[in-house]
Design a protein around this nucleic acid. Structure first.
Lengths: 205, 205
DNA sequence: TTGACAAGATACCGCTTGGTCGGTATCTTT
DNA sequence: AAAGATACCGACCAAGCGGTATCTTGTCAA
């Protein structure tokens, strides 16, 4: 009875990836709970049947976005640069400098996707929380290791506790993004990160 | 036709205040968008008619929660202590110490109501954003003034920029709460605040 | 005592939501 | 080429949502 077939050729991986991308955007704009499947579908021209073929529930889709979109994105933007040099403070300063330089409307408008989901979902869904926590722990660990290495190389003060300081720096970063987001001010975000730079500088041996 | 009248005696102010309290809790637990009016009503035994007599829309209720519940609460817990002494760093250390000492499950579970609403609502509703921003600006201003006073009293390093540092400290606080919340760990929250204490200490003249 | 209005009650509405289901088209395997 | 599995389609559904309309009742000034 039903006439269908808009998608002539099949491409399940592409479909799945399209859904993840659209879901990521929708979640970034509206949060997870308020994210509308209909809107996601409208932005992908994927049918509801296809969606529910790839993901069992909205929740599964959300979890997949965390693992397959947000985690890699943050890894590329924040973790990777640490492995490049042996002076962690210089690396961190460079990362922060880059963030300050490239700060624009889009970052300030929707903030950090990780932080957004933490505030919204971590008290409501244990599996969401674990997914987000995994990213967070990796981030802290990468930074803590870098700081410890820096201590060995005599470039970081001996009295800093790598794990604690790494935790604090991550917290400060998320805080800066959050404040910038509410002020809707790229400049406030930059001023906040500048103070973080000064703090990082104070860790030097 | 309708049999009614559960509330024998009237008390409009009490009703309003009950609604604000219940809405505050519901928003804290579910976020604003996912907050259910029906659930708020169920927790107050107030009727829908009464709710819509006091508040025109759900949105108005949310804005009232920000102005009449969250703002005073934060003022009492974070701003007020500053006015008590002339050494801002000591005041801040004392506040942080207090937060570390009294940190418990409930703080860690739902996080900071201000930060929650910022992440969720500030990109979606300009009036929400302004309401939240007002609280934020007051907070930063109180702290910046205290720092500037501290500089006059030679208790704060002369090279710190009061406004910028105040902004950073607020960001760091929100960040610490956020991380503790996702880790669901009072201890992580405390460790994070301890590093903030060390930072604050480093501002001393 | 009464009239007017504020406060509160409840049934109802349109709409969106996440999710289901029977069916079809394409791809892979044999 | 037949068969079976995978990918996809879209109409449909119950439930919950915020909001409205119409009503009753408590309060208090005149």
């Amino acid at each position: 009875m039903t006439t269908q077939a808009i998608r002539k050729t099949r491409n399940p991986e592409q479909t799945r990836s399209d859904l993840l991308d659209a879901a990521y955007t929708e979640i970034l704009e509206s949060g997870f709970q308020a994210a509308s499947l209909e809107r996601i579908l409208a932005n992908t021209s994927v049918s509801k049947g296809a969606l529910y073929h790839h993901f069992g529930t909205k929740r599964e889709l959300g979890l997949a976005v965390i693992k397959e979109v947000i985690a890699p994105q943050l890894a590329a933007r924040w973790f990777a640069p640490f492995t490049e040099h042996d002076d962690p403070l210089a690396s961190l300063q460079r990362i922060l400098e880059e963030k300050i330089r490239t700060a624009d409307e889009s970052v300030i408008r929707y903030g950090c996707p990780l932080n957004n989901l933490i505030q919204e979902m971590s008290p409501l869904d244990e599996e969401f929380r674990r997914g987000l926590q995994q990213i967070l722990e990796l981030w802290v660990e990468v930074m803590a290791t870098a700081l410890a290495d820096g201590q060995q190389a005599q470039k970081v003060r001996a009295d800093v506790a790598p794990k604690e300081v790494a935790l604090f720096i991550v917290a400060a970063i998320e805080g800066c993004v959050g404040l910038g987001k509410n002020a809707q001010s790229v400049e406030a975000y930059q001023r906040c990160l500048r103070q973080l730079q000064l703090y990082v500088q104070s860790l030097a041996a």
